[in-house]
Amino acid sequence: MKTIGLIGGMSWESTAVYYRRINESVRALRGGLHSAEIALRSLDFNRVVELQKAGRWEDAGTLLGEAGAGLARGGAACVLICTNTMHLVSEPVARLSGVPLIDIIDETAAALKADGRRNPLLLATRYTMEHGFYAERMARHGISVTVPECDARGIVHDIIFDELCQGLVEDGSRRRYLDIIEQSRARGVDSVILGCTEISLLVDPNSLPLPGYDSTAIHADAAVRFALAEELERAA
């Protein structure tokens, strides 16, 4: 088994989901008392948020890249950025880490394409919905991303930072997300991307009015496939 490197803490609420999902998947595949070999560098999210707000993406890339390099020195065979938004700086992180970076956007696109989805609604932070990097990357895979209207984007973003990243899961916020999805159906979307790693704490992707794709689960499962690639190939 290869060691999985996690750049986490953004927020730690979702990083905990990664840790559980990866270990549950390894146990399901290998049985018994098996668990994943994981190296985790958990950053201070407040520091990252300050860089986001200031638009200091180059500095953010260096911060995460140095974390990835540390994981690689510690034996990680790959790295994951455990957040969608910070994939804005995935290129410098991959370069500085020096090991394969398993990309959440590419993996989510692959899951959509496998199911024939081409026009998903993206629910994420404002940075992810509005910056352009996410839509551009999805377009390379032939997928056209739709985002909520302006006011709804603000609602989605605020619930992520003011509630989910702080461990608050509110029924009223769940209803607001579901309302936003319903409103977007008229715009021709065929699916929903939970494009922030905390959103799965609020809504179940399998209980939405449209097919849902949980980017956190997709990303974690890709890491397990990487770590167990040789075993899975022998078993095929």
Rank of each mutant, 00 (worst) to 15 (best):
K2F: 13
K2D: 09
G5T: 02
L6F: 12
G8V: 14
G8S: 12
W12H: 09
W12Q: 05
S14D: 06
N23T: 07
N23K: 06
R27Y: 08
A28F: 12
L29P: 09
L33Q: 12
H34M: 12
S35P: 00
A36Q: 09
A36V: 07
A36N: 09
S42L: 08
R47K: 10
R47F: 12
V48P: 03
L51A: 12
L51H: 07
Q52F: 07
G55I: 07
R56G: 09
G65N: 01
G68Q: 05
A69M: 04
A72D: 11
R73M: 00
G75W: 09
A76G: 08
C78H: 09
C78I: 08
I81Q: 02
N84F: 02
N84L: 05
H87M: 06
R95A: 14
L96N: 04
S97R: 04
S97E: 11
G98K: 06
G98V: 07
E107Q: 10
A109C: 11
M138W: 06
M138F: 13
H141S: 10
D151R: 15
G154M: 08
I160S: 01
L168S: 14
S173T: 06
R176W: 00
D179M: 08
I180H: 07
R185Y: 02
R185V: 11
R185W: 03
V189T: 00
S191W: 03
S191K: 04
C196Q: 02
G212H: 04
Y213W: 03
D214A: 01
I218R: 01
H219T: 02
V224Q: 02
F226G: 03
A227N: 07
E233V: 13
